[in-house]
Nucleic acid binder design. Structure first.
Lengths: 160, 160
DNA sequence: TCTTGAACTCAAGTTCACTTGAACTTGAAC
DNA sequence: GTTCAAGTTCAAGTGAACTTGAGTTCAAGA
């Protein structure tokens, strides 16, 4: 490729809307690639812009950097997504969004149920006790999936 | 109040499901109060259990510690929520959940719209560009409200 | 050539909601 | 009186996703 087709950092930041530090971070994390100028400055291929758009979209759906890396890595030849890729991926993301929506709706229904009772009991109220830590009967589905629990590393796994 | 009505830490952790460290943290943050035994150990009033149930419910709805503190502080006399308080509060939370659901649904609709086109364009695709950073016309509502943007302190405010 | 803004590296900082560890004390039971 | 689980404090660590700062170099225009 011709060196004149490569974009400098400033171009990438202004066109993608990401800060330079974020771009460097993504490169360090292996989400995007960069060439270097004689003096060591980054020079990006145009396709990086599409990758960045993809990254932004994915992160809006709530994917972590690692998940985005996986998703990008699943693209054959590590290429920028084609229409077919995008088709498959967006169906995947759609399912994920559906799950999140359903989870919030369960929470809402639980809350509506609670408005009448006002109990907020540690033992029986499913809303204040979604993990069923003390539930008297092995009642149903957890209200919130992990993807919507306030992302907190140290809480993960230790359900308390 | 009679000292025999006060509960020690172990009782609180086992009944509330919170770790002792979390209880201490909540006390330090001013979400709950504690008396002290002669030797300096914490002794809790029974009502603290209801406060903790409230805290758990609030955090499931996605409120931050600060928001929970505010919400508790809005209770007249800083009391444990009554039925009427709970009524008002749960309607508030319900609206919040509704917003979150609506936001995810907008995202989903945007995604469905994108499946056909496959464009993922930085300039025009609302899905990859929900902030309308480069939008050509001042098009509509942001897809995701801040409450559902991946909570990331340093990203807050700097919409890029 | 000079200047100046853009870019570089690397380490450390940020936020949130806690947890962990070390070193020590309490208090209830035997 | 001894024991030991349960409790205490305080500082530091955790993870994600970057940002900030310090100090240095690049590169394009006048």
């Amino acid at each position: 490729m011709d060196a004149r087709d490569l974009l400098p950092m400033g171009e990438i930041t202004s066109r993608s809307g990401f800060a330079a530090s974020a771009i460097r971070y993504y490169e360090a994390e292996g989400l995007i690639d960069a060439h270097r100028s004689g003096g060591g400055q980054r020079r990006f291929e145009r396709s990086v812009l599409r990758r960045l758009a993809f990254i932004r979209a994915a992160s809006n759906v709530g994917l972590s950097i690692e998940e985005i890396r996986d998703e990008l890595g699943r693209l054959p030849g590590n290429r920028t997504p084609t229409k077919a890729d995008w088709h498959r991926i967006s169906r995947h993301w759609g399912r994920r969004l559906d799950e999140q929506i359903a989870a919030l709706q369960r929470l809402k229904v639980g809350l509506d149920g609670c408005i009448g009772c006002g109990c907020l009991s540690l033992r029986s109220c499913a809303f204040s006790n979604p993990d069923d830590v003390h539930a008297e009967d092995g009642a149903g589905a957890r209200l919130l999936p992990d993807s919507l629990r306030r992302p907190h590393p140290t809480r993960r796994g230790s359900s308390a």
